[in-house]
Computed example of a mutant assay.
Amino acid sequence: MRHSTLDKLITEFDTGLRTLLAKPHSQRAHPDEGLSEAQLTDAEKRHASALMRVNHTGEVCAQALYSGQAITARDAATSKTMQQAAREETEHLAWCKTRIHELGGHTSVLNPLFYAGSFAIGTVAGALGDKWSLGFLEETEKQVGEHLTSHLTQLPEADEKSRRIVEQMRVDEAKHANDAKLHGAAQLPAPVKFCMKQMSKLMTASTYHF
């Protein structure tokens, strides 16, 4: 058992390094593939880049959360659900990072901090039991979906490439939330949901600028 836990830690440590340092790859085609670049002003590019940077950090947090939960999940099926969600979030990382660079921006310097915090939260959530771990997954994806919807109203209207990426991410997040519910996710208490939203606001406000 001790060796099994150590193996998991090594695997997730490697995942963390890849998330923060390596170039992510997507098995699926990028949602904006084939679309022409719109004529955006410098201000629009900076704004779109900042929004995509926020989305990128959100995916970093999701990757860390699911990695932490996968370590402490008691049921093999639950752990597999977490790992699958994390793999799909890697595609989102690739899409966002590519788009940020196309817009002339950069990913957030705060990513390591948010990754560490999210990983710790995921580990605790997993230790509470699989139904609560899945509850965190479902609520996280619901909040991310709301967050992405708000970005669709904020992105420059002409920036179809960014919009296409955000739209596909929203579809994927809704699927993750539904999968968690089908696997027996518990309904999180209102205070927990509130705290999650406040943390999300902190991440959004800081990574938009940094």
Rank of each mutant, 00 (worst) to 15 (best):
Q168D: 03
I71W: 13
A38Y: 06
S206G: 10
E33L: 06
A70G: 10
G104T: 03
R53M: 05
H209G: 03
T123C: 13
R46N: 11
T149R: 13
C96S: 14
T81A: 14
P112K: 11
V171Y: 04
L35T: 02
H47I: 01
E59P: 13
T15G: 12
D7F: 09
S49T: 01
D130V: 09
A50K: 12
L137G: 02
I121C: 08
H147T: 04
A64K: 10
V54Q: 08
A180G: 05
R163A: 05
L35W: 06
C61T: 11
A76Q: 12
Q84F: 07
F119E: 02
F136E: 02
H3C: 01
L51H: 00
E173K: 06
G68E: 13
Q198W: 15
H47K: 14
E88G: 00
E160R: 11
R28M: 02
L20M: 08
Y66P: 04
A77L: 10
L9W: 15
A120P: 10
S36W: 04
D7E: 11
F194C: 06
D42M: 12
L93Y: 04
A190D: 05
A85K: 02
H56I: 00
D130N: 06
V60R: 10
E146V: 02
H92V: 00
G34K: 09
K193E: 07
H25S: 09
M1I: 12
S79C: 09
A186F: 11
Q168V: 05
T5A: 15
Y115L: 07
L17M: 15
V124H: 12
E88C: 02
R170P: 00
Q69E: 10
W95F: 00
H92Y: 05
K142N: 08
Q143T: 09
D7L: 14
L17K: 13
K197N: 12
S162Q: 10
L51R: 00
V166L: 07
T81V: 09
L21W: 09
L40M: 00
A174Y: 02
A180W: 02
M196H: 11
L110D: 01
M1K: 04
T15Y: 15
D179W: 08
T149Y: 13
A48H: 06
I165S: 00
T149P: 01
E37V: 12
P156R: 11
P191F: 15
G184Q: 10
G126Q: 05
Q84C: 00
A43R: 14
C195D: 04
A50Y: 04
A205E: 14
E12G: 04
R74G: 15
D159S: 02
C195S: 14
P191T: 13
A64G: 06
S4A: 15
D159E: 15
T90F: 11
G58D: 07
C96I: 03
H176D: 00
A38E: 08
G34V: 13
E139Y: 06
A48F: 03
G105Y: 06
A86M: 11
Q84P: 00
G145F: 08
L110T: 07
T107R: 10
Y208V: 03
C195G: 14
K175E: 06
G126M: 05
K131D: 09
L103K: 07
K181V: 03
H56L: 03
H209Q: 11
Q83F: 02
A127Y: 14
G126A: 03
